[in-house]
Amino acid sequence: MKLPVKMTINGQTTSHEVEPRLLLVHYIRENVGLTGTHVGCDTSQCGACTILMNGQAVKACNLFAVQADGASIQTIEGLAKNGELHPIQQGFWEKHGLQCGFCTPGMIMAACQLLERYPTPTEEQIRHQLEGNLCRCTGYHNIVKAIQWAAETMAAKK
């Protein structure tokens, strides 16, 4: 049995017939072909698959594609606008907030929601909010710095 799904991903409408058990992250990666959203675990610990669904940071491995029917999705590929990096992306580059890059899309998408909740976050708030995203390379030090850089840059732009 297949079910129709239709959603907006990074401003573009997509529709497919999918198995009800198809995970949203596999839909995004395989059916839509956006491979920036990664799969790092099978128990929803690592956060590499974090995307924004209707503005909320969610783990795309924790939803079926059919649950996202009608939703508006943003992935890492949709974050830069007109070739200009989002301040969070820029912050990760400036502050060396990544090494192997595998956790990075999920980290950046989680940071989007983090900075919406806490536009001027403390270090403790940043660390707490990233509790659902694992990184094995950076020891988190420069990820914290990257998000602090982004917060300052976004505040200065307002």
């Binding site: 491979t35 920036g36 990664h38 992306q89 990760f92 580059w93 060396h96 890059g101």
Partner: peptide, 16 residues
């Protein structure tokens, strides 16, 4: 790092 632009925009090319 020169490799970062592809990683921070989701354009890294991993095996999967």
């Amino acid at each position: 790092r020169r490799e970062d632009p592809r990683f921070i925009t989701g354009r890294g090319q991993y095996v999967d």
